[in-house]
Simulated scan of single mutants.
Amino acid sequence: MIDWTAITTVLSVYVVGVVLPGPNFVAVAHKAASTTTREALALVGGVVVVNLFWASCSILGIGIVFATFPWIALAVKVIGASYLIWFGGRLIFKAGSTSAARTSSEGRSLGEAFRTGVATNIANPKSMAFYAAVFAAAAPKHVSGPTFVGMLATVAVVAAAWYGVVALVFATPSVAARYRRGKAWMDRVCGAMIVALGIRQLVR
Rank of each mutant, 00 (worst) to 15 (best):
I62D: 03
S174P: 01
A129G: 00
V143G: 04
T68F: 02
P21H: 05
G198A: 05
F25R: 01
L60W: 04
R200I: 02
N121H: 13
A101C: 07
L84W: 01
A67G: 10
A139R: 02
K141C: 00
V165Q: 02
N121F: 09
Y163A: 00
P173Q: 12
T37I: 01
V10E: 07
A55N: 02
A29S: 10
S97E: 13
S109L: 14
A139Y: 10
M193E: 00
A177M: 11
G17K: 08
K77H: 13
A132P: 06
A101V: 12
I199R: 10
L74M: 12
T9V: 11
V50S: 07
R188V: 11
A192C: 05
A6K: 10
G182C: 09
A42P: 09
G182N: 15
A55G: 14
V118C: 09
F148R: 06
L52G: 13
R108K: 15
S12H: 06
F93W: 15
I122L: 15
G89S: 11
I122P: 05
N121P: 01
G63C: 03
S99E: 15
P140E: 04
V18W: 01
Y83L: 03
W162T: 09
K31R: 15
S97G: 13
V165W: 01
R180H: 14
P146R: 04
W54Q: 04
A81I: 11
R178S: 15
F93R: 15
A129E: 03
R108P: 00
I92H: 06
R38W: 04
T35N: 08
R38N: 12
G145Y: 10
R108C: 08
M193D: 00
I85E: 06
R180A: 14
N51L: 01
A33V: 00
T116H: 09
T5W: 05
V49K: 11
F148L: 09
D187W: 07
G96R: 08
A161C: 11
Y14D: 10
A167G: 07
T5N: 14
P23C: 03
Y14S: 10
V49I: 14
A40V: 02
G22W: 00
T9M: 12
Q201H: 13
V50P: 00
L43E: 03
V10N: 09
P70W: 06
S58Y: 02
S82V: 13
V195T: 04
V19G: 03
R102M: 11
G191P: 06
W185D: 01
F114Q: 06
S99N: 13
S109M: 13
A95K: 08
Q201R: 10
A27Y: 08
V175E: 08
A156Q: 07
S82R: 00
R188T: 05
G117K: 07
V26I: 15
L20W: 02
N121L: 08
G22A: 05
G45R: 07
K77N: 15
A67H: 11
L110E: 09
P146N: 02
V48K: 04
F148Y: 14
P70I: 01
K31C: 13
M193C: 15
S109H: 05
K141N: 13
I64Q: 12
I72S: 07
L84E: 02
G150Q: 04
C190L: 11
F66C: 03
S34E: 10
S127P: 00
V155D: 12
A32M: 02
I122K: 12
G63Q: 04
W185E: 09
F53N: 05
G191E: 08
T36V: 09
A192D: 00
L52A: 08
P146T: 01
I85D: 02
A136D: 12
I122N: 12
G89L: 08
